[in-house]
Computed example of a mutant assay.
Amino acid sequence: MTDTPDLTSLRRIGWREATLPADPRRLARVVAQHRAGYEMHDGSSAFNAQPAGHFLKRGLDPSLRPAVGDFVFLDRATHPVIEEVLPRRSVLTRAAAGERYERQIIATNIDYVLVLTGLDGDFNPSRIERYLTLVEGSGARPVVLLSKADTGVDVDAAVSALVARLPDDASVHAINAKDPATVPLLASYLGPGSSAVLVGSSGAGKSTLTNTLLGEQRMATNAVRSHDSRGRHTTTHRALLSLPSGGCLIDTPGMRELKLTGEENLDLFADIETLAAQCRFADCGHGNEPGCAIQAALASGELSPQRWRNFLKLHDEREEQAATLEARLKRKAAPKPAGKPKRGEWRRGDD
C-alpha cells in the first residue's frame, strides 16, 4: 500500500502515522516561533500562522501553547489560525531561567536528542550528565556527539573518560562537524520519518554540523573565543529543518543555563542509588557513618568523586525544583478569596 500525495508530503516533516486524521482541517507542523507568530510547514510549502485566542489567555500553562515540533490543526483561511495542538509523543523541557518557576519547551515530537559538546575547553562530563538528566522522561533517546575531534586532542582518552561515567547503553560518537563522513555516521538517527533536536553550548559547532547535514552553508557560523572555547549565539531561535536524509532536525540556540524541572528520576545515576541501598543504615548520610557503601565505592575507585559530587548537586536541585513545583500547584489549586461585594449586593450573613 502506497502513501497518498498528502501523506507523502507530511512524511517529509516527520509525520509517522500510517494514515491521515479524519479531521478536515489543515494539518501542519510548527517549524519556528517568532514574536509575530509561528512559521509552519505542511510538507509542501512554508507559511505563517497565528495562534487562536484560547492559546493567548492569561495564566494559561505555557506548555499548552504551540511549540516547535508540534503537529497542529489550522483553519483553511487565507491567514491561517492554529486551532488545536495534536497529542505529543515526546516533549523535551527545562526550567526557564530566573527565580520564577516555569517549564520551557525546547522541542516536541522528537525521537533523538543530539547533545553536542566540543572536545576543547567546552568538554565537561558533568554538564553532559545534566543534559542527559533533562532528556530522561522526555520520550526521546539521547545521543552524545563530541565535536572537534580533528583539533589535536586525545579523543580516545576523552571518550573513555565520558563513557566510564555514563550507562552502558549510552550512545557516544566523536565527530568532525565539518566532515561529510559525519552524515552516514548519524544516518540511523536522521532517517526518513525521524526527528531530532540538536542541543549544546554556543561554539560547540551546532550550526556547522547542521550545515554539514544539510549539504549546504545555510546556517551562520562564528569563531569561538580562545580562552574558553565559547562562541556567540549564531542561532537565535529554534527552527525545524528537513534534511536530505529524509529526517528532520531542530537546531537550537546555545544554552547557558540548564535548570532541572523537578520531575526528573535521575535514572542516569541508578548505580549510585543501588550503592546507597547497600549502606548498613537506612538513614546513612554517606559521610563518616560505618558501613557506608558510597564511601567504600569512593575509596575503591568504583565511584568517581566527580560523578558523586555531580549526583549530589543534581539531586539537591531536583528536590528544590520539585518543592517549588508542588508549592506552585497548591497555590493554583487553592480557592480564590471572595472579592468585596459590589454596592447594593447582598451576601448571606450580611443581615
Rank of each mutant, 00 (worst) to 15 (best):
R26A: 14
G59A: 09
I106D: 03
I82N: 12
S207R: 05
Y131K: 15
L134W: 05
V113F: 00
V163W: 03
E317Y: 02
L185G: 03
G43H: 05
L27R: 00
S171H: 03
D154H: 04
T2I: 14
A170N: 01
P125R: 14
G193L: 06
L185Y: 00
S242I: 02
D75I: 09
R127T: 04
P244I: 02
S226Q: 04
T4D: 11
G137V: 00
V85A: 10
S171A: 09
D271L: 07
D179C: 06
G152N: 03
L132M: 10
E102G: 13
C248V: 04
R309H: 09
E263N: 06
H227E: 14
D271H: 12
D179Q: 03
P80K: 02
T210A: 15
N176F: 04
P167I: 14
L10C: 05
G14D: 07
Y38K: 02
A52M: 08
L64N: 10
D23Q: 05
W308F: 08
A49G: 02
G121Q: 12
D42P: 10
R25P: 12
L214T: 10
P5L: 13
T2H: 12
D271K: 08
N310Q: 07
A177Y: 06
D271V: 12
P305G: 01
P253H: 05
A297P: 03
A177N: 11
V183H: 00
L249A: 01
S245L: 13
L214G: 08
R25Q: 06
A276L: 04
Y189H: 07
T93Q: 11
G118A: 15
R318C: 09
V68P: 02
L241W: 12
G59D: 07
I175V: 11
E317M: 15
S126R: 14
K342A: 10
Q321W: 02
G137H: 05
F55D: 04
N211F: 06
L240D: 08
L240I: 09
S207G: 04
A334D: 14
F73R: 09
L7M: 09
T182V: 15
T236V: 13
R307C: 15
G37V: 13
T274N: 08
K313W: 03
T151W: 03
A36D: 11
T252I: 12
S300H: 04
V197Y: 01
D228G: 09
S195K: 01
L209V: 10
T19D: 10
G285M: 13
E99Y: 06
K342E: 07
I105R: 07
A97W: 00
T324L: 12
H237R: 14
R230V: 10
T324S: 08
R348C: 06
T2L: 15
S126V: 02
Y131P: 07
R348S: 06
L198A: 08
R29W: 07
L27Y: 00
